[in-house]
């Protein structure tokens, strides 16, 4: 299926979903405002912590806010677009996934097109607000590379989180009831990459910043944006590796998904 065909299909399917959500406008507005306020409380906790410290792991509050904002936007967009894949285990156990296999559309595209959680926009906006604060308050020496790197990193972040959601869902094809494990990598990964890697020990770093390459879309670009040295001594080209790493990770997630679906087609529901 060509990209343009896929996009048209997505547009039509998502259109119905969005219209149906907009019907319940009051509920949507409430969800939206609630999530907006809740997520501000989330960052407020970081601010409270910083009343006691000048810097954490060598990073000041505005610098942490940069990481927080980048990570937050990434996971919020991914959650909005493909977060619903977390619920695939319901369709797998019930056998409703059979219907997905009966349609002449790639399975992952169908999952993506099955929902667009508008209420998550609250979290996106909150993270953008934190990011704006970070850009205003942190001392960034802007140059063309930095101006380009920021949006690239954020967009790659959304893809990496999206691929992580998919990989987490793949696990549920094999292990019943394993749904929560995925949140270690998605929401846990988000929490981790809101802070500099220097805060965490080698095991956590390996698992949650490299196995799932979230560090490449938050910490490393952050180092370049803020012109900070890396006390952990990672090579400097890591700071520009976001697009490459993202592409490899997304392709891997796609292949694992294919394998998961093949498993479903061998064993039934």
């Amino acid at each position: 299926m060509h990209v343009s065909e896929a996009w048209t299909m997505y547009r039509h399917l998502i259109g119905a979903r969005v219209r149906s959500q907009l019907q319940y406008r009051t509920s949507l507005a409430l969800d939206f405002s609630v999530s907006f306020v809740v997520t501000f409380l989330d960052f407020a906790v970081v601010v409270v912590l910083f009343q006691h410290l000048p810097a954490l792991g060598g990073w000041t509050l505005p610098e942490i806010a940069l990481l927080y904002g980048m990570s937050g936007i990434g996971i919020a967009i991914a959650d909005m677009v493909i977060g619903q894949v977390e619920d695939i285990h319901v369709d797998i156990r019930s056998g409703q996934f059979d219907v997905v296999l009966l349609r002449p559309v790639p399975t992952l595209l169908q999952v993506m097109a099955s929902d667009l959680a508008l209420r998550r926009i609250g979290r996106v906006l909150q993270s953008v607000a934190v990011l704006v604060y970070a850009l205003a308050a942190a001392d960034i020496a802007w140059n063309p590379a930095r101006v380009a790197l920021l949006p690239v990193a954020v967009v790659c972040g959304a893809f990496v989180f999206g691929a992580t959601f998919v990989l987490g869902a793949c696990l549920t094809f094999w292990v019943v009831g394993s749904t929560e494990v995925a949140s270690t990598f998605t929401y846990g990964g988000n929490q981790m990459t809101s802070y500099p890697l220097t805060v965490f020990g080698p095991w956590l770093r390996r698992m949650l910043a490299f196995a799932v390459p979230l560090a490449f879309v938050t910490y490393f670009p952050g180092l370049y944006l803020l012109n900070k040295p890396d006390p952990l001594g990672y090579p400097q080209w890591f700071q520009f590796a976001a697009p490459l790493v993202t592409a490899v990770f997304v392709v891997t997630a796609g292949l694992v998904w294919r394998t998961a679906v093949r498993h479903y087609r061998s064993t039934g529901s």
Partner: peptide
């Protein structure tokens, strides 16, 4: 049971993250 094991894994991971911070 399986969900409980999954939950324990997640709780433990988050524990390490929060403790580190």
């Amino acid at each position: 049971r399986a969900a409980t094991v999954a939950g324990v894994i997640t709780n433990t991971a988050f524990g390490f993250i929060r403790a580190a911070v």
